[in-house]
């Protein structure tokens, strides 16, 4: 038995320890690993009617992955440019949303983390309260704000800043605003947590040694907060790339998010293997992006848990 297992059982007692261990294993293996493996298996199978499942035609194939690259067999184009475009746009847009959230949240997290006083609790609460509302309702709320007869257009037209209402939805402004807003807390709190533990004296020492404010951030605060920054970015990126509600509700008619394609395969065309293949591609791409990002920030897997 590994040492940590032994210590764990010693500390909790054998029976409660085994129960805990069992629950954790059930959670990770039963609810995460096995479904993902079955999804992986699905992605390599042909879409067959139920009568043929397990029959001679039920073999592993790369068809579903080929489809993402080349489109339907005998199609008019060499590549499946529609889906690929959606895929890359999703990844790039998710990365942009992540960067935008980072730029927006770092000052907030820094302020929350380095300021003392009761008002900090109030501010934190004000940040959290909107998230008591369901994600879909929040998306609809944004739709009301950005809609053609919405609050924002009401103000723009009413004050004479604009002659005609601006279509925020068709131009994807609403989509990016919604995605940017959706996971903001997951960016703020990891950074806030780290910055809160930064010794104020270090900031003052840097200032005392002649550093202007931006160099204090570049040289002292950001290196210290990089663990929080990377775990915030990881979560926001993953969740944004995998978001469904915001694109469904706030996306313009012509703009698809990659998750919507996956959704269509599963739901509308009942092609589970095709949907599974797309989902696997999205998951792997996100993991690769995150690992590259962590490499860039010199953060190891173990640090992210902190």
């Amino acid at each position: 038995m590994p040492r940590f297992c032994h210590d764990f059982l010693q500390r909790l007692g054998t029976v409660p320890g085994l129960i805990m261990l069992g629950l954790v294993l059930f959670w990770t293996i039963g609810l995460i690993v096995l479904p993902q493996l079955s999804m992986l298996d699905f992605s390599f199978r042909a879409n067959l009617p139920p009568s043929e499942v397990g029959g001679p035609n039920d073999v592993h194939t790369l068809e579903n992955y080929k489809y993402l690259l080349y489109g339907p067999e005998g199609g008019s184009q060499r590549y499946n440019s529609v889906d690929l475009k959606v895929f890359f746009r999703t990844i790039v847009a998710a990365a942009c949303v992540t960067l935008f959230d980072l730029v927006l949240c770092y000052p907030i997290a820094y302020y929350l983390g380095q300021t003392q006083g009761k008002h900090i609790r109030v501010l934190a609460l004000l940040l959290i309260i909107p998230y008591w509302i369901n994600e879909i309702l929040r998306a609809f709320a944004l739709r009301i704000i950005f809609g053609e007869t919405g609050v924002l257009n009401g103000i723009l037209v009413g004050t004479g800043l604009s002659d005609a209402p601006f279509d925020f939805i068709r131009n994807n402004y609403a989509l990016y605003a919604g995605l940017g807003y959706a996971y903001i807390l997951l960016m703020i709190f990891p950074i806030y947590n780290v910055i809160e533990s930064l010794d104020r004296n270090q900031i003052e020492a840097a200032r005392d040694l002649g550093a202007p404010w931006w160099r204090i951030h570049a040289r002292v605060v950001i290196p210290y907060a990089r663990i929080g920054i990377s775990s915030g970015c990881t979560m926001v990126f993953m969740l944004t790339a995998g978001a469904l509600a915001a694109p469904q509700i706030l996306g313009g008619p012509s703009s698809l998010w990659f998750t919507q394609l996956i959704y269509q395969h599963f739901n509308d065309s009942s092609n589970w293997p095709q949907g599974a293949a797309y989902a696997v591609v999205l998951l792997l791409s996100c993991i690769v992006m995150v690992l590259a990002f962590m490499r860039l920030f010199k953060v190891s897997m173990g640090d992210v848990n902190k």
Binding site: N201, E204, A205, A206, D208, A211, R215
Partner: peptide
């Protein structure tokens, strides 16, 4: 002026020599 803090406030992620010459880096 230069201040030496009660808890010293050395920069933990910088090497000793980088700590010492932080003002020159600036």
């Amino acid at each position: 002026t230069a201040l030496i803090f009660q808890n010293l406030a050395l920069f933990p992620l910088m090497k000793v020599w980088e700590n010492i010459t932080f003002s020159m880096e600036i």
